[in-house]
Design a protein around this nucleic acid. Sequence first.
DNA 1: CAATACCTTACGGAATTCCGTAAACAAGAA
DNA 2: TTCTTGTTTACGGAATTCCGTAAGGTATTG
Lengths: 222, 222
Amino acid sequence: MFQKILIAEDQITIPDGLKKPLNDLSIDNIKTSQYCDDALLKIKAALRSRKPFDLLITDLSFKEDHRSRDLTSGEELIKAVKEIQPDLKIIVFSVEHRVGKIKKLLEAYHVNGYVEKGRNEYKMIIEAIETVLKGEIYCSQNIKLLLRNEEEISQTDQYDELLLQLLAKGLKRDQIAVHFKEKDLPARSLSSIEKRINKLKILFDAQTSEQLVAIAIYRGLI
Amino acid sequence: MFQKILIAEDQITIPDGLKKPLNDLSIDNIKTSQYCDDALLKIKAALRSRKPFDLLITDLSFKEDHRSRDLTSGEELIKAVKEIQPDLKIIVFSVEHRVGKIKKLLEAYHVNGYVEKGRNEYKMIIEAIETVLKGEIYCSQNIKLLLRNEEEISQTDQYDELLLQLLAKGLKRDQIAVHFKEKDLPARSLSSIEKRINKLKILFDAQTSEQLVAIAIYRGLI
DNA sequence: CAATACCTTACGGAATTCCGTAAACAAGAA
DNA sequence: TTCTTGTTTACGGAATTCCGTAAGGTATTG
């Protein structure tokens, strides 16, 4: 079983409620942190003193504060952690349900588990810990389903993502073309930009470009 | 002090963590519910048996489930509760930070307090309960600030909201005009619709209608 | 009643977006 | 090389959006 775990979570009720079920798994060395920066510091310190954490459970969103921070989200924390301790197992525990975001966590950051906050969170956290312990990836059933559905649709690459972001930022088609030229990206002509937007509209079944942007936001693509 | 309170919250860790501070306020009769429907039933039952709740603490978002439900969100729960027991004090406890949504809760549904989940949630819940007990409205400091900033901008009425919703749903300008005609709403001509959209773009400093929709979503207006 | 202000609508031209077609180009296969 | 295949770009006309101006309507005020 995991020996030393860190819970990064700004909602104080969460680690409070989590302690009992974790103790039941005979995990006793539980540290908590309400700030991303602080969590990273604790991980660094543990590493230096040769008593590293072997599991990190982290939320994604942390409320802002008077304190100045370097890291502002769980995503940044995960990225930073992977750089200093790549073998640390990470389970994300969040209300995030937008498939695009979760997909990114699993594929780009290689987190070991994703548990959605809600009804069965105790049970799912336990399952997740046991699964990750076996070296497997944990993902709650409904997320798995969503991810499978997403597969078909989401061939949207990083260029499409950028395009959608620029649309949402208020750039006109020709301005997007200029932007693509400046960044030396492929398919940079006005005509190609138009075609791409059109393809995305078909892909996401959007009638107008306004709806396309709305869908992209709701799906967590941008 | 409040005698009998109900916590509606699908994250099981929350009421677990909340019980201790509530007991410190000598609130002992605490019921919990993981479903909106169930919460409403409990409130109805308590009312019938002449032992009504005098405080409801509720989240806004509830995860979906296999169970079929009538009520699916805290907002609907609040609306339903206000109909059967208008004097029940309500404190909303949520991660929602989009001012538009919070504004609506306070102004349209007259909830008695809003506490944002996060760092100081224990303290803020306590403060909220004490404030509401005095018959006042509680709202955390940062939300108050946000609301004040919002005041200047948000003269957007329900028609503007509908218009933005229709834009996000993929209707073209002339289709929106038709829709407004069908619903017998004022300023229903294509020209008026265009003018309204233009005014909204100026109001929200959007360069394109795509950006306008994005801003509306991010602000929680739609 | 007239005068004014305000809201709504109509209209028209410019700008932009939409959408199909075709040319130009690049990469791989025969 | 030549042929195919697929991608990128150019182009042009239709549709839509954008934006200013003016006309019509309604309510308010003096």
